[in-house]
Structures are given as C-alpha cells and as structure tokens.
C-alpha cells in the first residue's frame, strides 16, 4: 500500500502524528508519498490541474506491475476498503488459477466461480443466477 497526495512528507508526518495515529493503532503502517507538482498524479490521470490536487484514485497493481483495477472518485466521497479487498481476492483467485476460473458479479471468497470454455457460451444462466448473490431486489 502506498498513499499519495500533493502534500509534503513533512505534512504527512504531522497529519499522522496529530490525527491519524488516533484512528489507527501505531499510526499509518504504509508509506505516505509526496506528489508535489502532481507529476505522479498526472501520469495516472488523477491530477486535477485546476485544483492542483490528486483526486481520489485507487489502483490495484499485481506482482508483475500491471494495473488490474482502478477507481477514481471526486473528493467528497470516500472509498470502500472492503470492496477493494474483495477485488484483490478476486484478482488473486484468477491469477492462482491462471485464468481457468473467473469470478462473476458479486463474487466473494468461497463463492461460485465460472470456468470459461465453449460449453459455457450461452449457458451462464445455468451456472450463475444474480438472485443467488444479490437476492431479490
């Protein structure tokens, strides 16, 4: 985990010391990177040139350095860490099965996976039903 904003590393330290360490035991455990000038945010398409800040972008990067997932939110809405963890678990499952098993919508660890193949074409409905994961809505 790396967090990044345009604030300096010195401000990161003070924020950790005076506020975040009161929310997280032992303080922030990961590196808090400084992106003064926005070069990193620009490279990732999340730097707001007008406001001069990095907006709320989140990138899941695999062991090969490949982006597997990304999400970008405007500043007033916070992220859902559980959803990020779920996505990482799903990407790890796919990677561990070398793509032999893929995770349908709403998948959670232990949930129904699909095995892509010619027999599945047009037959997903036999294997997977949205009501099973989402209930009646």
């Amino acid at each position: 985990m790396i967090s990044i904003s345009v604030d300096s590393q010195f401000v990161h330290k003070v924020w950790n010391d005076v506020e975040l360490s009161k929310m997280v035991d032992g303080g922030v455990p990961f590196a808090m990177g400084s992106d003064g000038g926005g070069a990193i945010g620009r490279a990732y398409g999340v730097y707001d040139e007008v406001a001069g800040v990095d907006v709320r972008g989140r990138f899941i990067i695999d062991p090969d350095g490949v982006i597997q997932g990304m999400e970008v939110l405007t500043p007033p809405v916070g992220r859902n860490v559980d959803e990020t963890l779920r996505q990482i678990q799903a990407f790890q499952h796919v990677r561990n099965t070398k793509g032999g098993e893929v995770t349908p919508s709403g998948w959670k660890p232990g949930g129904k996976v699909l095995k892509p193949g010619i027999g599945l074409v047009g037959n997903v409905w036999k294997e997977w039903n949205p009501k099973d994961v989402y209930g009646k809505r």
Binding site: I2, S3, A31, I61, P76, G78, T84, I88
Partner: peptide, 25 residues
C-alpha cells in the same frame, strides 16, 4: 524515506491518491 512503486514488484500493491492531508473524508 523515498518510496518506489518498482520496489513492490512481486507483491500486490494498492496505490491510493487523495486530495490532501487534513481533508475530512
């Protein structure tokens, strides 16, 4: 200490950007 994305090769890593320290959300 400087942090490099490439130092995480071989591991899963999440990179999170946010608007600023001491912001509310």
């Amino acid at each position: 200490v400087p942090v490099s994305l490439s130092s995480f090769l071989g591991k899963w890593v999440v990179v999170c950007f946010y608007p600023g320290d001491f912001s509310f959300v």
